[in-house]
Computed example of a mutant assay.
Amino acid sequence: MIVVVFSFIFAITALGILLVSLIRTPQALQVTIPIVATAMAMLGGAFWPIDIVQNRFVLFLGELMPIKHSLESMMNIIINEYTLIDIIQPLGILLLMGTLFMGIGMNLMERSTKA
Rank of each mutant, 00 (worst) to 15 (best):
M1Q: 12
M1E: 10
V3G: 07
V3H: 09
V3K: 01
V4Q: 02
V4T: 11
F6A: 14
F6E: 13
S7M: 06
S7V: 02
F8T: 05
F8K: 06
F8S: 06
F8C: 09
I9A: 15
A11L: 06
I12Q: 11
A14V: 04
L15A: 07
L15H: 02
G16L: 07
G16S: 14
G16Y: 02
V20G: 08
S21V: 08
I23Y: 08
R24G: 10
R24N: 12
R24H: 09
R24K: 12
T25E: 08
T25S: 11
T25L: 06
P26N: 12
Q27G: 05
Q27N: 10
Q27H: 09
Q30K: 04
Q30V: 01
Q30H: 04
T32V: 13
T32Q: 08
I35Q: 09
I35P: 00
V36F: 07
V36D: 05
A37G: 02
A37F: 12
M40K: 02
M40D: 02
A41Y: 04
A41D: 01
A41V: 00
A41F: 07
M42G: 01
M42E: 00
G44Q: 00
A46Q: 05
F47I: 06
W48T: 01
P49G: 09
P49D: 12
I50K: 07
D51S: 13
D51L: 12
I52G: 03
I52D: 10
Q54R: 12
Q54N: 15
N55C: 09
R56P: 02
R56N: 13
F57P: 00
V58I: 14
V58E: 03
L61Y: 15
L61T: 09
L61N: 09
E63C: 12
E63N: 15
K68N: 05
H69M: 01
H69K: 04
E72K: 14
S73D: 04
M75L: 14
N76G: 13
I77R: 06
I77T: 05
I79E: 15
I79L: 13
I79A: 10
N80F: 10
Y82Q: 06
Y82W: 13
I85E: 05
I88G: 04
Q89T: 14
Q89F: 15
P90K: 00
P90G: 03
L91V: 10
L94K: 04
L94R: 01
L95D: 07
L100K: 03
F101S: 01
F101Q: 02
M102S: 08
M102T: 02
M102F: 03
G103T: 11
G103C: 04
G105E: 06
G105Y: 00
G105N: 01
M106F: 01
N107W: 13
N107P: 03
L108K: 05
M109G: 04
R111V: 06
S112V: 09
S112R: 15
T113S: 13
T113P: 00
T113N: 10
